[in-house]
Amino acid sequence: LEARLEQANLLKKVVDAIKDLVQDCNFDCNDSGIALQAMDNSHVALVSMMLKAESFSPFRCDRNIALGINLSSLMKVLRCAQNEDILTLKADDAPDVVNLVFESSESDRLSEYDIKLMDIDQEHLGIPETEYSATISMPAAEFQRICRDLIALSESVAIEATKEGVKFSCSGDIGNGAVTLRSHTNVEKPELNVDIALSEPVALTFSLKYLVNFCKASGLSGTVKLCLSSEVPLLVEYTLASNSYLRFYLAPKIGD
């Protein structure tokens, strides 16, 4: 494997966003790119990352390899990179280590780190293709704010999408709270658009603790997409450049 990222910052932000949810992960490398799928310990949330080969320049992977990496170790090394550094990941065919090289575009500084790999026996889940009843796209910062505001009142949030809009509501010991967003197009600032695509109304309840955690990815993309269907996990997606993405799935709270 040899994969060169223009900005080390991208990998740094991705790892920073997921490191509190999942600890040891396989980075599955093949000629289409670098993928990661991992569940949290409670099996309630799942992270699915895809960094497509096109996100790297150049990208070369001659043989499929799984790099088992402890994310807190990876974060320690990524913190040694300047945000603007060029990052090159390298690994042999049957690697014991992954090699990270950081190059400054402005100076002649070159730093090099090896991280020891681990054998991780990871359960891979098949995620079915789903036609979601509601797909909401909104500013990532808005979603983060709603989750942070509501977690002050309650552990759970009900997300209800109707043709009127999307309502985030919660109730707790001190009282209730709700935030409603309607479809909104801002011609001058399209990054503030809220778009609700609905085939049928849907209402589901989720744990806010996980949603707040997912929102650590807000710095990766201006927009977040929420996909909901009755009785299936919520998909929270942050789209990255070159069709790469960081997705989170969250199992709902069900029944009385």
Partner: peptide, 14 residues
Amino acid sequence: PPKQATLGKFFGTP
């Protein structure tokens, strides 16, 4: 109150 489901209920092991 509603109970937290786990992902295994929805996503199969291939």
